[in-house]
Amino acid sequence: MAAQPAVRAQSNTPVKIGVLTDQSGAAADFSGRGTVLAARMAVEDFGGKVLGRPIELLDGDHLSKPDLGVALARRWYDEGVEAIFDVGLTSIAIGVQQLARDKNKVVVYLSTGSTDITGKYCSPNGIHWTYDTYSQANGAFLAYGGSPKDSWYFLTMDYAYGANLERDVTNRVAATGGKVLGTSKHSFEATDFASDILRAQSSKATVVGLMTTTMHSVTVMKQVEEFGLRAGGQRVAAPALTFHDIKALGLPIAHDLMIVEAFYWDLNEASRAFAKRYLEKFGRMPNMNQASAYGAVTHYLKSVEAAGAVEPGKVLPKMKATPINDFMTKDGSIRADGRVIRDMYLLRAKKPAESKGEWDLLELVKTLPGSEIFKAPDTEACNLVR
Results as ranks from 00 to 15, higher is better:
A3P: 00
A3Q: 12
P5S: 05
V7H: 00
R8C: 06
A9W: 00
N12H: 02
I17E: 08
G18N: 10
Q23I: 06
S24M: 07
S24H: 07
G25S: 12
G25W: 08
A27S: 14
A28S: 13
R33C: 03
G34F: 12
V36Q: 09
L37K: 14
M41D: 03
M41G: 03
M41C: 03
P54A: 11
P54H: 06
L57M: 09
A71I: 02
A71G: 13
R75N: 11
Y77V: 02
A83Q: 05
A83E: 08
G88I: 04
G88S: 09
R101S: 06
K105N: 07
V108N: 12
T112W: 05
T112C: 10
T118Q: 12
D132A: 06
T133R: 10
G145A: 10
K149V: 00
W152M: 11
Y153A: 00
T156V: 11
D158N: 13
G162M: 05
L165K: 04
L165N: 11
E166F: 01
E166L: 08
N171S: 11
A175Q: 05
G178A: 08
G182Y: 10
G182W: 08
E189N: 07
A190D: 14
D192T: 06
R199Y: 03
R199V: 09
R199Q: 14
T206V: 01
T206I: 01
V208E: 05
V208W: 11
V208P: 06
M211W: 14
M211L: 06
H216P: 00
V218R: 04
V218F: 06
V218E: 04
V218W: 10
T219F: 03
M221E: 03
Q223F: 11
F227I: 14
G228S: 12
G232K: 13
G232T: 10
R235Q: 14
T242N: 05
F243D: 09
I246F: 02
K247D: 07
K247H: 13
A248P: 02
G250Y: 14
G250H: 07
L251D: 01
I253S: 02
H255T: 10
Y264P: 00
D266L: 12
N268I: 15
S271E: 12
R272T: 14
R272D: 02
K276C: 05
E280A: 15
G283S: 10
R284T: 13
P286K: 02
N289M: 01
A291K: 11
A296P: 09
V297W: 01
T298K: 15
H299N: 09
A307N: 04
P317A: 09
T322P: 04
T322R: 14
I324P: 01
D326Y: 04
D326K: 03
T329S: 06
K330N: 09
S333K: 15
I334N: 10
I341T: 11
R342V: 08
D343P: 06
A353M: 03
W359L: 14
L361K: 01
V365P: 00
V365G: 00
L368M: 15
S371K: 15
P377T: 09
T379N: 10
E380H: 07
